[in-house]
Design a protein around this nucleic acid. Structure first.
Lengths: 301, 301
DNA sequence: CCGAATATACTCATTCAGAGTATAAAGGAG
DNA sequence: CTCCTTTATACTCTGAATGAGTATATTCGG
């Protein structure tokens, strides 16, 4: 086989948020992410992936973006033939209403896999243990001890400068290096969080990190909620994704300052408390929004 | 050949800024981007690309990130065998001082390829022509006429809401659809800007767009300037990348508000005007900076 | 009719971004 | 030597956005 040939595979991180929990589509009862070989019938990667996912899951995928491409020497293959496996991963968002009918299928809460990432009810207790293990790992690092400490301290907020919810991948990779997750061959006893096959949990971490970064400067939450929603639903979606609790008045202000939504005129039919107005997303602003966010200090001439 | 096999190729967008011009490393006197087949000797994509680029160009690459993975049916190949070409593109940044010795090699100013993207001396005149052509194209769009107008108006700022320098790719793709660039088979006479082989100009557009977006929230300019630099150099680098003129006092304020740099104690040896202090980048803040930028309205409990 | 629960509306202080002005230090022209 | 051009650096003023907290509406279940 000539050089430059490889086996190509598509992997999807499909995300939905239901009842305040972020969920990801899996196969084999949570053991892996949906994936498949790149077929020659697919005209473009994006289009191919979309039709493939929709065939398999029967959910329309509102939003789809490429995540990352990995290449590892194919472990299950004959060595020496120069072939390797290329995995092209995608992040897809599915609206809650589409998931609703789909019984207790293969949607798993993503904090099963990353329990240390959910800070909505405060800093998880297990971070104490993780921190101790990371310290041990750093101490055994010889020359790289200082560097290990610096990385761990930064990613896990060991010096109290504030938890950065975006560092999902950095945290997972540190835990992998320190052998605190089963995929790395855990040191003693079971590792933290539920493992996945091959490097699927790492890909999931990449997807979560991307999504957490994205909600700050692009209105992607709207791809996850139903067409009409209350402000509380919207906030809870943002909280589910970021794993943080948000300040209600300021969240609302930010939303309507940017004129992201409009009232539908209807009222939510839930029981407790004062009924909430229903809103819909103003698709028109998707572009206007892209205009903002310029942090460069422009000159007027 | 079994399904799922493909030819894999690496493509690099290598960027440097010299004498106020953003440049990109090319092959064949500007006709294409450096590329090569994925070799089985490469252990990871990132590492493989880095060593490959440094072998070919003899420039150390300070910063390297994956851009995008394309898959197109290989046009030059036998059809029907199920193989296709996968192109994995990377963005790399090179410091000016490394380029200096490298004579008049294969570095080409990127505004040769995208002359309509340079707004440092005001809105380029050719945008008038481009706009007229785009209007014609939209008029001939039948049912999609309104949609075409909306896209063109947004990307090229036809209604004066302000030029968005990030939309490099959108603009190139519109011009491709309207056949205003030679790669699409230009309508009449030569297309706008200098063409490149295959889809290399599109990949370059992707790289420029990524870099323009990135300088707003990550201090990547420092990967492009020498180890010690003046504030004017730094600003001119930012201007070269964004294609915009920036407001000097505010640019300076932003830089030292974030404590990104420190004085070296030395003074630049240039002739005209008051001599400028030299600064160096404080690598320590790379992490602290990542902490900022949280636009989510957090709650305190 | 009261209180728990939720929704919605303001307030106040601080920081930050946009825009412009003022002063300092060099070299060159006369 | 003095003035003028050029670049560097330091402030000012204003308005917008953000962080944090408080106050007022509605509903329902007792």
């Amino acid at each position: 086989m000539p050089t430059g040939f490889a086996q190509a595979e598509l992997i999807a991180v499909l995300v939905a948020v239901t009842t305040g929990q972020p969920r990801v589509m899996t196969i084999e009862r949570g053991g892996g992410l949906p994936s498949g070989n790149l077929e020659s019938s697919h005209h473009s990667l994006q289009a191919g992936l979309r039709s493939w996912v929709e065939d398999q899951t029967h959910h329309p995928v509102g939003y789809l973006e490429q995540l990352y491409t990995f290449a590892d020497r194919g472990r299950g293959m004959d060595a020496g033939i120069g072939a390797r496996r290329i995995s092209i991963s995608y992040l897809g968002l599915v609206q809650e209403q589409s998931v609703a009918g789909a019984d207790q299928s293969e949607w798993h809460g993503w904090y099963e896999y990353f329990p240390w990432e959910d800070h909505r009810e405060g800093r998880p207790d297990m971070l104490g243990q993780i921190t101790r293990h990371l310290h041990d790992w750093a101490e055994g690092g010889g020359a790289s001890r200082a560097e290990r400490l610096r990385r761990a301290s930064f990613a896990f907020d060991l010096d109290g400068r504030g938890w950065n919810e975006d560092l999902v991948l950095q945290r997972y990779e540190l835990m992998y290096e320190a052998r605190l997750v089963d995929e790395a061959g855990s040191l003693q006893g079971p590792g933290f969080g539920r493992p996945m096959m091959a490097d699927h949990r790492r890909i999931l971490a990449t997807g979560i990190a991307r999504l957490r970064a994205k909600i700050k400067y692009q209105p992607v939450m709207f791809e996850l909620v139903p067409d009409s929603f209350t402000l509380l639903q919207l906030q809870q979606t943002a909280e589910a994704l970021s794993g943080l609790r948000l300040h209600k008045p300021n969240f609302r202000r930010q939303i309507d300052q940017h004129a992201l939504i409009e009232e539908t005129g209807e009222i939510a039919q839930e029981t407790r408390g004062r009924p909430a107005k229903l809103f819909r997303y103003r698709r028109a602003v998707l572009e206007a929004r892209a205009l903002a966010g310029s942090r460069l200090p422009l000159s007027r001439d």
